[in-house]
């Protein structure tokens, strides 16, 4: 797996200008908002794109056929992509915190609590987003996955709408439920978000492995 991680990191090197541009844009945009934790959310949202781009590089020019003649299993390849996503997410959030402190100090901000609150939540959200996107990319490839993503977003929208509206039909007040969640201890909320992301990531990894094991190159 280490060899594959090195390959992906070297491929990321080819995108260093784009990454630098994203970081600069985050800093510039954060000057126009009150909330300095914006950088954390912005960089977190951008991360899956970089992880997915390594799949596109692997896939380009029938690259999978060669990759799977190397001493790696398809399960190992999937595991590496999730680990790489995790590492990249952690690294970009660390950078986001640094930038957030830099911007905050420049703006005279002394309270950085919002940044620290955002980190685990954004980390969980990014992990969930990546867990949805990775199997789609492995199944459909970079091009077709775009259409699949639109379908998934539509499905999520319908699901959220149903979750919000259907309980009302049975007389369940969702506002009360939401208030109960907000009232939860911050640590419990963070732990819950991380646990939820972990469960989704494990399920996603299982699906991705099954998809890749069935593919022919």
């Amino acid at each position: 797996m280490k060899g594959l991680l090195i390959k992906d990191m070297r491929l990321m090197k080819a995108q260093r200008n784009f990454f630098a541009m994203v970081a600069i844009l985050a800093v510039v945009l954060s000057f126009s908002t009150q909330d300095i934790s914006f950088i954390v959310g912005y960089l977190g949202c951008m991360m899956p794109q970089f992880v997915l781009s390594t799949i596109s590089y692997d896939e380009f020019d029938n690259g999978y056929a060669f990759l799977f003649t190397l001493p790696i299993s398809r399960k190992g390849y999937v595991l590496e992509k999730y680990c790489f996503g995790l590492l990249l997410c952690a690294a970009s959030l660390a950078l986001a915190v640094l930038l957030s402190y830099g911007v905050g100090l420049a703006k005279g901000v002394r309270d950085f609590q919002s940044t620290w609150v955002a980190v685990p939540i954004v980390f969980s959200a990014t992990a969930v987003l990546l867990s949805i996107l990775l199997p789609l990319h492995l199944k459909f490839g970079a091009e077709k996955a775009r259409f699949a993503i639109i379908g998934v977003i539509g499905a999520i929208f319908v699901l959220v709408y149903a979750v919000v509206k259907i309980p009302g039909v049975f007389g369940i007040d969702m506002k009360q439920f939401a208030s109960a969640i907000y009232a939860l201890n911050h640590v419990a909320l963070t732990a819950g978000a991380l646990a939820f992301a972990l469960c989704i990531a494990l399920l996603s990894m299982k699906i991705s492995t099954a998809i890749l094991c069935r593919r022919e190159f």
């Binding site: 390959k7 070297r10 491929l11 590089y57």
Partner: peptide
């Protein structure tokens, strides 16, 4: 095993 394919290999960006 060592393998060569005519249309496949390491990414051209490496």
């Amino acid at each position: 095993i060592g393998v060569v394919f005519p249309d496949s290999g390491f990414s051209g960006y490496l």
